[in-house]
Each structure stands twice: as structure tokens, then as C-alpha cells.
Computed example of a mutant assay.
Amino acid sequence: MTTMDHVARIQAEWRRERPDVDVTPQGVIGRLHRLAAHLTGELVTVYREHGLEEGEFDVLATLRRAGEPFERAPGELARHTMVTTGAMTKRLDRLENAGLVTRRRSHADGRARVVALTPAGRDLIDAAFTAHMRNERRLLAALPPGQAALLEEILTRWLTEFER
């Protein structure tokens, strides 16, 4: 007997109950959805080992990727991390209280604010990012050689359709 994963069982039930509806898309979408939940659980474990929540990791990583002097405007951070400015404010409050970022007025425009990594924030994100990449490499090791690259190509093409 062939073992079925969770999605295959759901598809079989739908095929039995609604043979008039093609449930093949569920094979891709359902598995991606479930896989995303599993992957998120694996990723946040590493963030927490560094004392960070997922959103805090995103903010620190976005600042670190900015390059010297490792700063961005709060609105720019919100766009890069795809959260509302209100959610960004809460994240920044926590990170500032932890001494990982500072907020100051912009030198270019005194009305604008700038968020910058502190040296402690840079050290933390560098360590967390290194562990994060090691973890992602571990997760991808479950795929046979070459399939990760093929999957990346397929997902890139598909995601491009949504992000146009």
C-alpha cells in the first residue's frame, strides 16, 4: 500500500465527495501551504536561539543589508519587511529597548526619522544570519542534488507573476 501525505488524503476525500471538481491544484498549493508552516517553525527556532522574534530578525537583517551606516527610514523598513508602520513601530520599540537599534532625526530632513543598527545589533544579526543560512542549508539538504536549484527556478518564475 502506498503511503499518502496529508494533502493526498484530503484530495482523495474531495475526489470521493466531489468528483465533479478537479482538485489537482490542491496538490501544489496545499503542499506549499503546509510546507511553509513547517519551514517557518524551523526558521523561528534559530531566531529564538538568538533572542529574536521573526519580525525583529527581519528588521535587523534589512538594516544590515543596507550597508554602512546600516540605517533606513522607518517607512522604508516597513516596505522592505511588508508590515504596517504601526507594526514596525512596535518592533522598533522592542529593538531599541534591547539596545539593538537607535532612532534619530535625519540629517537631511529634520522632520524625518532614521533607524540605525547599534554595534550590538550588528553583532547579533551577523551571528543570527550565519546560523539562519546554516539552518536553511540543512533544510534544503532533504532534496536530491540539483532539485533545490530547479525548485528555485520554478518558484522564482511563479512569484514573479504575483509581484509584477
Rank of each mutant, 00 (worst) to 15 (best):
R31M: 03
L139A: 10
L32A: 00
G146S: 02
A128I: 09
G121Q: 05
R16E: 09
R105N: 13
F129W: 15
R15I: 09
L117G: 00
R164E: 03
T3F: 11
T89L: 13
V21A: 03
T81L: 04
E152I: 13
L124D: 03
V7Q: 00
D126P: 00
E152N: 12
A116P: 07
I29P: 01
H38M: 14
H80K: 15
A148L: 05
T45P: 07
D123P: 04
R103C: 02
E68N: 09
D22K: 04
D22T: 02
R164P: 08
T62H: 11
E53Q: 12
L151Q: 09
G41E: 06
I125L: 02
P69M: 05
E56S: 04
T62M: 12
D20H: 04
S106D: 11
R134P: 08
R64Y: 12
R94G: 08
L143Y: 12
N135F: 09
F70A: 05
L139D: 11
A78N: 01
L95T: 03
G51F: 06
L151D: 11
A108G: 09
D126S: 06
E96K: 09
L92Q: 07
E68V: 04
R9G: 14
E153G: 13
L100D: 00
R134F: 11
A66L: 07
E56A: 09
G110N: 02
G75S: 14
N97P: 08
V114G: 00
G67K: 08
M133D: 15
E96H: 10
E17C: 05
R111F: 13
P25A: 01
H80W: 13
V59R: 04
A142F: 05
R113F: 14
R134K: 14
P74W: 12
W158R: 15
G27A: 05
L151C: 10
V23R: 00
E53I: 10
T45D: 14
G41A: 10
L92W: 07
R111K: 06
T81A: 11
G30I: 01
T156I: 00
P119V: 00
L39Y: 13
H107Q: 15
H38I: 15
L159V: 04
A12Y: 03
L63W: 10
